[in-house]
């Protein structure tokens, strides 16, 4: 099990030097999302905003954070936070909807499989 231990140590080290938590800009104020180490690289979490809306917050494998609306516009279900992250060969990081697999660019909210569709992008920051 040497490999597993090494990975765990590496992650602990990263946490110590990394940010403390993540915040999202909503209604003009920075709202706390969660502690930094709750975010798994390549995955997301769902956030309930004060106005009842939902956001999906992701950490990618280079430790950049992204936030978009949690609602999948194709099905109406609030599930985008549970999608897998990917990147196109030219480096656009996206989330693939876990329902019907459409991909959404996390920087612009644009749907890569249907340019007519776009979702809201939120500002988010590690602190």
């Amino acid at each position: 099990m040497t490999t597993a231990t090494t990975t765990a140590t590496a992650m602990a080290a990263a946490t110590r030097t990394g940010p403390d938590r993540v915040e999202l800009l909503s209604g003009g104020t920075w709202t706390p999302v969660c502690a930094w180490e709750r975010l798994v690289p390549g995955r997301g979490v769902a956030v309930l905003l004060p106005d009842g809306r939902q956001a999906a917050v992701f950490r990618d494998s280079r430790d950049a954070v992204h936030a978009v609306a949690n609602r999948d516009p194709f099905t109406g279900a609030y599930v985008l936070s549970r999608g897998l992250l990917g990147a196109t060969p030219d480096g656009r990081v996206y989330v693939a909807s876990p329902l019907l697999k459409q991909r959404f660019d996390l920087a612009t909210g644009e749907c890569l499989d249907d340019p007519a569709v776009r979702i809201e992008v939120h500002r988010v920051r590690p602190v």
Partner: peptide, 19 residues
């Protein structure tokens, strides 16, 4: 990986190869 391992994608992978 393609593109000499990391390439522009920064080693993210995608929803096909990850699972």
């Amino acid at each position: 990986g393609r593109l000499g391992g990391r390439g522009a994608a920064g080693g993210e992978g995608c929803e096909v190869c990850k699972p």
